[in-house]
Amino acid sequence: MSQLMIADRVPREELMTSGHVACPGCAAPIAMRMVLKALGPKTIVVMPASCWSIIAGPWPQSSLKVPLYHAAFETGAATASGVRAALDMQGDTETTVLVWAGDGGTFDIGLQALSGAAERNENILYCCYDNEAYMNTGIQRSSATPWGAATSTTPAVQPQSTHKKDILAILAAHRIPYAATATVAHPVDLLEKVTKARAIRGTRFLHILAPCPPGWKFEDDETIELARMAVRAGVFPLVEVEHGEHWRFTAEGAREPVGPYLRKQGRFRHLGEEQVRQIQAEVDRRWNAMRRRVESSESDEDGSLAEGG
């Protein structure tokens, strides 16, 4: 798609101001800017502790032109449930309540509140911008950190020893109406997903890969490239799932090997060929599992079509 065509499809209104205080090359503000463009001004943001607590600006400033509630680290989904209830009582069913949380606030400390809200099918949109570690506190591991990555609590001599938690499957298991992955390198896909999510009632979940130059240790002009490589390597497939059952790839194409993606990042520098092969095997395993989900959704749909006919 040409640049012009993309620009045509991106709403012009800016709900995020310049002058935010993220590091150069940070994907997190790019993601916020795009998501808010798709949601529009009738949005209230609930933001648990994360890099974004800083990016949003210190009191009395704000880099957002929509209402913003800074929430305790583990309470994103629960705080948003309360905001939603209050709006409903005021007769405002139109405003989107958006949770904007990091991977730590989502995969780890906020998972209980998120599971509770998803189980209740709260009418909120939950976005997790995933930079694969606790960046705000200095790059400590989270359960979103990939196997083999060095962080400040999993040093290169003893790197992350567990595989990334499959958060999308966890949310899908709650059978929420909509869950999807997205990245900052695929703006049209991201916008379409947010637009789709906005129109749905109930809990909607968006998992956005957000490369972090100081955390992943890459040059700050390579953010978009890395997000794109993550998708192409199958590390981060672009998918969506409705009601926990109907899985769909939203971008496909030839799979590329994972090595070049890893080699671009200092957090994987210590890995030898054997470990890269291990990562490749895990990526393949997950990719195949995802493909099976998608295929079985397709055959289910064919089946129900046949029954209907």
Binding site: Y69, T75, A78, T79, S81, G82, A86, A113, S115, E119
Partner: peptide
């Protein structure tokens, strides 16, 4: 609106969100 949360922690968080939104 009665929000039947999964913990007291979320109960207070929900009250915080609701109160901040004016309820």
């Amino acid at each position: 609106r009665f929000i039947k949360v999964e913990s007291e922690h979320s109960a207070m968080a929900a009250c915080i969100g609701a109160s901040a939104a004016g309820a």
